[in-house]
Every structure is written in structure tokens, then in C-alpha cells.
Amino acid sequence: MTNSLENNRLTRRFDALKAANRAALVVYVTASDPDAETSAALLAGLPGAGADIIELGMPFTDPMADGPAIQKAALRALASGACMDRTLDLVRDFRKTDAETPIVLMGYYNPIDSYGTARFAADAAQAGVDGVIVVDVPPEEADELQPILLSQGVAFICLATPTSDDARLEKILKYAGGFLYYVSILGITGTATAAADAVDVAVQRLKRHTNLPVAVGFGIKTPENAAAVARVADAAVVGSAVIDRLAAALDAKGRATPDLLPKVLAFVADLAKGVHMARNA
């Protein structure tokens, strides 16, 4: 298989961060939550607030691995008219002003399958997407998606979990590109937080199996949680806690208030401080 990820923004960003001895802050937001315009403004503001990588959720009606915060975000987005075309448009708009911050799309397989996998891979690459995480495509089913993405230079980012034993890790790593996403808890997004030493042990184990950067997510809620992860892993992913800040800045009808951008971006800045200072402490 051709390695077409050499020029991928994810590769470049992780290389640069490694040279600077600091971890990446990965911030998750759902595309078009609560509406396309607010979402575009939020995306544009994230790098300045300290997000090193953006994970952009593709809204889906049945997000089986997500907790209440991201479930509601998807429903808000869909109610505002979210669809795959609009999600890709958000990436295109973002790329007009930011050519370097990697964007990873995250979601479930059906909207991709419905769009058409080949068309999705081509359009995502053209829009400026660097990687894709599809929660319900494990290695057992990855043959129908991973090679198509890779042929367009888009990384197929795989999940490893506390239930992935060594044999499964090898299977996962056959498909994994960009970085390895470690789901640090048994559960859905935005619920429990893993103990820092358990994360440490898990990351060490993953590092013995792969040279890919390791990102840790699920249950990271505070700058302190994020900093603890950033000391041992290459990236900390924060999603539900960011969405909680966004949801708190909606009015009674679920519309964005003027507080939304400053509040969410201030929280991202706090997270970034935690992550970026973690290895200096």
C-alpha cells in the first residue's frame, strides 16, 4: 500500500510538536452545532485559542458511542439542517484562513456510506480533511473504507480501548494511520474519567506496539485532566466538556447567544494552557 500520509497535516503537526516536546490539544466540536454560522466562527477561533488539532463531529441520529452532551449536539445540528455537504463546506471555509491546523472528521458509518465512500474520500480530501474516525467501523470491516481514504491521502484513524488485547492491537494497527486514539474508559463519551496512572500504563503499552502518536480521549473534563494526559500521551482529546460550555451558552430555544464564542474559546484556552505547560511543570 502506498504511504500517502507523508504530507498529511497530522504527520507534520505531530512531528513539530514532538520537536517542541509538547503534547497536542485536540478539541472536538459537532459540525453545525447549534447552526452552521456559529459553527464556522467557532472553528475559525479554535486554533487561536490553542487547539492544535480539530476533531469535527459529523452529526448522526444514532450516536451509539456518545453520551448525552454529544447526542444533544448532534440533534441540535440536525435540527439546524446539518448534512454531509454542509460539514464539508465548513472545512472548506476553515481552510480559506487556516492551511495548517489538521482537521479530523469523527462520526458513524451510515452517513459516509450513504454519501458514497469513494465520493466521500475524494470530497473530504479536496475540502482539506486530514483524517477520519468512524466509531462503528472496527478492523473487521475496515477493508471497505480504509484503503479508499488512504488513496486520497486521508488517514483512517483507529480506536484502541481497554478491551483491546495485544492480538487485537496488532489487528488494529494494520489499518491505523495519522494517530492512534486511545479510548481511556469502558463507556461512552463524557462520562467517567480514567485514573491517571491507568492511562499512563495503557499509553506505555500502546507505545511498545506502534510509532504512531497516541491520543487519549473520553472523560477528559478539566485542564488538570488534560494536563495529566499530556504528560504521558502525544495528545489529549476534549469533547463533551467543550460541548457542555457551548450548551450552557444557548438561549431557551437552543439558539446561540453572544456569550457562546467567548465562553467556549476561553475554556479551550484554559485546556490549552494545561496541555502545553504539562511537561514543563
Partner: peptide, 20 residues
């Protein structure tokens, strides 16, 4: 053996559930 009936079926679940 992969749980496919022609193009249908399969195991489209999150990695956490795969071992189970």
C-alpha cells in the same frame, strides 16, 4: 465466517465491543 450474508450483516460496532 465474518458474519456476512452477501453484502449484508457484519460487525459494525465500536472497538470496545469487538472482543465481547
Amino acid at each position: 465466517e465474518r458474519g456476512h450474508f452477501g453484502p449484508y450483516g457484519g460487525r459494525f460496532v465500536a472497538e470496545t465491543l469487538m472482543p465481547l
